[in-house]
Design a protein around this nucleic acid. Sequence first.
DNA 1: CTAGGGTTAG
Length: 758
Amino acid sequence: MSHLHTAALKAAKLNHLKQLHAQLFQHSLCSDNYWVAQLIKLCTLLHAPPTYVSRVFDSVHQPNVFVFTNILKFYSQLGAHSDVLYLFDKMQKCNVAPDAFVYPILIKASRKWGIVFHAHCIKMGHDWDRFVRNAIMDMYGKFGPLEIARELFDEIPERAVADWNAMISGCWNWGNEVEARSLFDLMPDKNVVTWTAMVTGYSRRKDLENARKYFDQMPERSVVSWNAMLSGYAQNGCAEEVIRLFNEMMSCGVCPDETTWVTVISLCSSHGDASLAEGLVKMINDKGVRLNCFAKTALLDMYAKCGNLAMSRKIFDELGTYKNLVTWNAMISAYARVGDLASARGLFDKVPEKNIISWNSIIAGYAQNGQSKVAIDLFKDMIAKDVLPDEVTMVSVISACGHLGALEFGSWAVNFLEKHQIKLSISGDNALIFMYSKCGNMKDAEKVFQSMDARDVISYNTLITGFAAYGNAIEAVELLWKMKKENIEPDRITYIGVLTACSHGGLLEEGQRIFDSIKDPDSDHYACMVDLLGRNGKLDEAKCLIGSMAMHPHAGVYGSLLHASRVHKRIDLGEFAASKLFEIEPENSGNYVLLSNIYASARRWEDVDRLRGLMTVGGVKKTTGWSWIEHEGEMHKFIVGDRSHERSADIHRVLSETEKKMRLAGYVADKSCVLKDVEEEEMEEMVGTHSEKLAVAFALLVTEPHSVIRVVKNLRICRDCHTAIKIISKMEGREIIVRDNNRFHCFSEGQCSCKDYW
DNA sequence: CTAGGGTTAG
């Protein structure tokens, strides 16, 4: 009933507004303060577009305090705090003294100015107005210090219900459950708002049992109370409860308002539940509900998360001038999520007033789609524009540093965190663990891990994967036991990490036992196991294992077998694995190269030639990945035969000198180790490509003797390169960390940390 | 005229 009433009222008011406007024009009353004030008041009620309201406002020559009050209210309802402050400024310039009606609006507008306005109120003598006082108390309750709110509360001679309510919410805001409860118990006349505040308070503490207890005991409930309980369940991921309560609410005859829709719609998005979403949309359409900007934004996000980007864009365009910053941000991250970075960036550049979330969305978009360098460059832009990053920004940046192996910039970021006192939560610490392990700094990775108060499965997985890459199998296996002890359930990623560690660390039996303990192994686990058996020379067992698989083996499984066949020179199994791979991924040149390496090592040159022919006929192109080298915080990009680097000449000079030194030291310098000699011939391509990256790194190391060089990405090391590294690290007397695809090699004084190498 | 509920980023 009540919603029908409001809807009718709204329609009537909208009609009234139009008529009023027309009449005002007719009687040239558009500059009359009384009528303008009334008009703006109506605009506020009807959520009129800001452009329209500001036009109405501008038509007044000398706005009075009523006009200002109403327009301030309008912007305050929109949450446009900067406009509120601007108008207050204008108000003073127009010599209009703010009255007791204005201050509550101003005080609520911004955290930053609340205290200033408090002082203002005292000066103007408005601080004894009960509404002003309530607003001030509310402000301190929200933004702190809570003690001041409490002092004000205690000073009030006759406390109104609103004063109690503001104080109770204040206590909840600062996590003071005991105080909130005792105030609640002391309070003489509680109303719906009081009860709802208790429900919200417990929901935010994730204490849903108590929240529900208060909700059930409420003498009466408003839509807001239902919303509070719904959002309590939604925030804590209890999807079924939300649906159940929502249905209960409908059967109680309570009409959902816009907030209800926002809560329920956003629940669908976080669940990615398309069928639930469909049902909701049908319900909304059947009821003929008109959604506001918040709900439309939630709907946009829901479609995006359920994979219907076209629908998202449609809502975005239909919103026209009604969309707010959140709508923009939701659309940006929608594009970023599917990897459409061009569209995301296009929108980002058009956002009228970017906030931290706009930046976070676009930076995370690049970071998650393999464009770590762009992510970091954007972050630098952001800093240059004096936008202060928050934890979420830093998570993306730190993770991007990890992907690039950019430890220098990563360390800068860590300092930045301390300098600006940005606190990291679990995901932040996880990003740090990731970065340190990707950069080969397991000591610091472990230090972060140890320092965490709470760890989740991702913390463990990240560290385990780090140890696996570094070849520290025992540490990885111990972590698996430790997490089980802490009652954190290992997932499929955990087992991939541990098995990889066993494989790299040579723990055959342990790995086998762990593999057998996996309840539901998938293709990735089989691939790890084939790798483990293969590295230990048990190739026939590996083939048997593949035969026993319940599902179709993916390329990784045969890839492991192919690699092992190459190492152990098993032509028969190599041919078997390769033939499967040519079917599954005919475009992957690596498989052809690997098989022909096997033939080459057996000197079966006619087969090598045959494969080459096959590649040409099949149109298989060698793909060469870029390599990145971090040097004094800057990332340098190289590719085979590349001479585009600005210091190319220096690098080449040093390379040839290095080659000479190596020869003098009695080593036969592999020509593929030296950039200038990289030629595309025979089967040297693979070796050549990777050696080149090393070579460039060495060159930088030698030309810049005090710098730290990290070689990252796409690196696989041949024996000859090891020789080269040994000599150079001996010559320079420093430690070099080199990462290859699967592990780290830490060289110092001719020593290498890894036990077996390719 | 106060006080209680809602959308976006990891």
